[in-house]
Write a protein that binds this DNA or RNA. Structure first.
Length: 614
RNA sequence: GCCCUCGUAGCUCAGACGGCAGAGCACAUUCUUGGUAGGAAUGGGGUCCCCGGUUCGAUUCCGGGCGAGGGCUCCA
């Protein structure tokens, strides 16, 4: 079965849920650490306890203000907590303010939080009498005979604990948002109202967190995409379909060119495969049987059903199969910037991060079982090289055999051991994700960390035993007999859409010189300096720089402001002095005015900067 | 797909009891030629998301749809 290479699997962004386990390869150096990494277990426990108590304080406040509200669950989560309530009407922002005000009173009163126990039957009666049907449902599923309860100020909640000693310890808390959430996460159940909040040990920590939220908002790739004129999506075009504007397309072109060069250096060959294909190919691959819900409905072409391509692998396999292959040819590495289309539910679409049409930086490696380790090492080397170029740090996970899976124990054992050997050869620490593999083979998942310390789904490397069987992918060995080839699916960047969406936020729109769509802008002081500006621009362009000229009749300060807002790395101011000295006055986006230098001087400075990217 | 919120100029957003539609930025023209983060004037620009209903009259109220945002679910 096809790989859920990067794009389809997992979350668009995942600052979510539980603390992440596992070792960090190179410690991220974020402005702020979003997750639990970097804190001691003790600190994490304290934070969880605090946030759990904050959830109880909120629940009490809600019950005080909305006595008819029914309590569901209210756990601590990364950076905060939530609590789900069953209420007749949804909470409004004004309600949140009232709830928060009531919470402050409860905190100020510093009520002790005490633990007690009840027998199950007693607890069921206790909550049943109060109409708390969700609590009753929870208690019924607790195997123990006694359950624990926590009480503050006459408000009692079923809870495993632990909690802080008193409500006064919940010092820095803020309610953030309200959202619908299903009871127990199932669409079939009642929709509840979930209030999210955040809680910290000190006011300063809360402020730092809120500042970080504001920074995320400032860096939002959808906002920057519009402000920097990089891309758009339009209702008339269709949801989840991206239009790349010249500047965004330039960034993409630069990344794709870089990607292609580096693939050629590493022995990959390029393929192009069609965007639509006969249903037959997807019947053979098994997509039709197993992936249909992500595929678009068939198109009729002369009475034959065709489908939009959801994955690239079938095409690559067909290319492999056009010849009888010898072991001497292997490994064969086919790469394609392959555009695929997958159905995503409307509610899940999000900017560039979750779309319906996207281009994967896909590759399939066909090799012998003996070559598997070496090939995986090669991919991991490549991953390391590429991610470093973009300034990401990362962490590896090994996903092993799930319960439902294809293939013999031997084959799984061999493949899993190969992946482990590769990880160890690369000296990568990794976390095992038991049973997290796909049913056709184990995989290595790489998660990366951006400048804000957020975690993103990164490269995946997957061994596949299924497609080689389905398509009968073989090679002739040294013994003259046919052998089953091993296939590796891998993406490094994931998809161009998601990767660039992430990069925009990672760089906050200020792309490094080698990726900046406009690297330098000439700013003539007065109209009469325009000719010189155009002349310098032509010189720099001839040397390979991406340069524009702002020859509008505006004041210098205005042009500088605009170039700065557009995050153009260099502004070259030219007036009488520069013409006389045949120079440019250089202003850097980061460092401000650098003074005058010759055109060649600026050129070699820029070239040096591009030679050491990242 | 589900819940909530939102949809007014290219963008960001005001607005009204149901009675000729507003600002800033952007754009055009003119003036200005100014040395490192916003010079001035004038002007053009609207199906107030779409369809239907109520009404003398709907951008405003009601219903449905589409789209966006925040979540949930799915994707492990």
């Amino acid at each position: 079965m096809p790989p859920s290479t990067g794009e389809t699997a997992s979350h668009a962004r995942s600052p979510s849920g539980a603390p992440r386990r596992g070792a960090v390869v190179a410690p991220p150096a974020p402005l702020y650490r979003a997750g639990m990494e970097g804190r001691s277990i003790m600190e994490n426990e304290l934070l969880e306890r605090l946030r759990h108590s904050a959830a109880h304080v909120m629940a009490q406040a809600v019950k005080d203000l909305f006595p008819e509200a029914k309590l569901a669950i209210g756990p601590p989560i990364q950076d905060g907590f939530y609590y789900d309530f069953d209420v007749a009407r949804p909470f409004t922002p004004e309600d949140l303010e009232r709830i928060e005000a009531r919470m402050r009173e409860i905190v100020a009163a510093d009520h002790p939080i005490t633990r007690s126990e009840m027998s199950r039957e007693e607890a069921i009666r206790h909550f049943g009498d109060r109409g708390e049907r969700y609590k009753v449902e929870l208690i019924r599923e607790i195997p123990e005979e006694t359950v624990s309860l926590y009480t503050q100020d006459g408000f009692t909640d079923l809870c495993r604990g632990p909690h802080v000693e008193s409500t006064g310890e919940v010092k820095a808390v803020k309610l953030l948002s309200v959202a619908g959430a299903y009871w127990r996460g199932s669409e079939k159940n009642q929709m509840l109202q979930r209030i999210y909040g955040t809680a910290w040990p000190t006011r300063e920590a809360l402020d730092a967190y809120l500042a970080n939220l504001a920074e995320r908002e400032r860096r939002d790739h959808r906002r920057l995409g519009r402000e920097l004129d990089l891309f758009s999506s339009r209702e008339e075009m269709g949801a989840g379909l991206i239009l790349w504007h010249p500047k965004g397309a330039m960034i993409r072109h630069l990344i794709e060119s870089f990607w292609k060069e580096e693939h050629l250096k590493r022995g990959y060959e390029f393929l192009y495969t069609p965007h639509i294909a006969s249903e037959e190919i997807y019947r053979i691959s098994g997509h039709l049987q197993n992936y249909a819900e992500n595929m678009y409905a068939p198109l009729e072409i002369e009475e034959h059903p065709y489908r939009l391509k959801p994955m690239n692998c079938p095409g690559h396999i067909l290319v492999y199969k056009t010849h009888l292959r010898s072991y001497r040819e292997l490994p064969i590495r086919y790469a394609e910037l392959g555009t695929v289309y997958r159905y995503e539910r409307s509610g899940t679409l999000h900017g560039l991060l979750r779309v319906r049409g996207f281009t994967q930086d896909d590759a399939h490696i066909f090799c012998t079982p003996e070559q598997l380790v070496g090939e995986v090492i090669g991919v991991l080397d490549f991953v390391d090289f590429l991610l470093r170029r973009f300034g990401y740090t990362y962490k590896a996970y090994l996903a092993t055999r799930p319960e439902k899976s294809l293939g013999s124990d031997d084959v799984w054992e061999h493949a899993t051991r190969s992946l482990v050997e590769a990880l160890e050869a690369r000296k990568l620490t990794y976390e095992v994700d038991p049973g997290g593999g796909v049913f056709y083979g184990p995989k290595i998942d790489i998660k990366l960390y951006d400048a804000l310390g957020r975690e993103w789904q990164g490269p995946t490397v997957q061994a596949d035993f299924n497609l080689p069987e389905r398509f009968d992918v073989t090679y002739v060995g040294a013994d003259g007999a046919e052998h089953r080839a091993v296939m590796i699916h891998r993406v490094v960047l994931g998809s161009m859409e998601r990767f660039i969406g992430g990069l925009i936020e990672h760089y906050a729109g200020a792309f490094p010189l080698w990726l900046a769509p406009v690297q330098a802008i000439l700013i003539p002081i007065a109209t009469r300096h325009g000719d010189y500006a155009h002349q310098v621009a032509a010189e720099l362009r001839a040397a390979g720089l991406r340069v524009s000229v702002d020859d509008r009749s505006e004041k210098t300060g205005f042009k500088i402001r605009e170039a700065q807002v557009q995050k153009i790395p260099y502004m070259l101011v030219v007036g009488n002095r520069e013409i006389e000295q045949q120079s440019v006055s250089v202003r850097s986006r980061e460092a401000g005015d650098l003074g005058a230098m010759s055109v060649e001087g600026f050129l070699s400075k820029a070239q040096a900067e591009m030679a050491m990217p990242g």
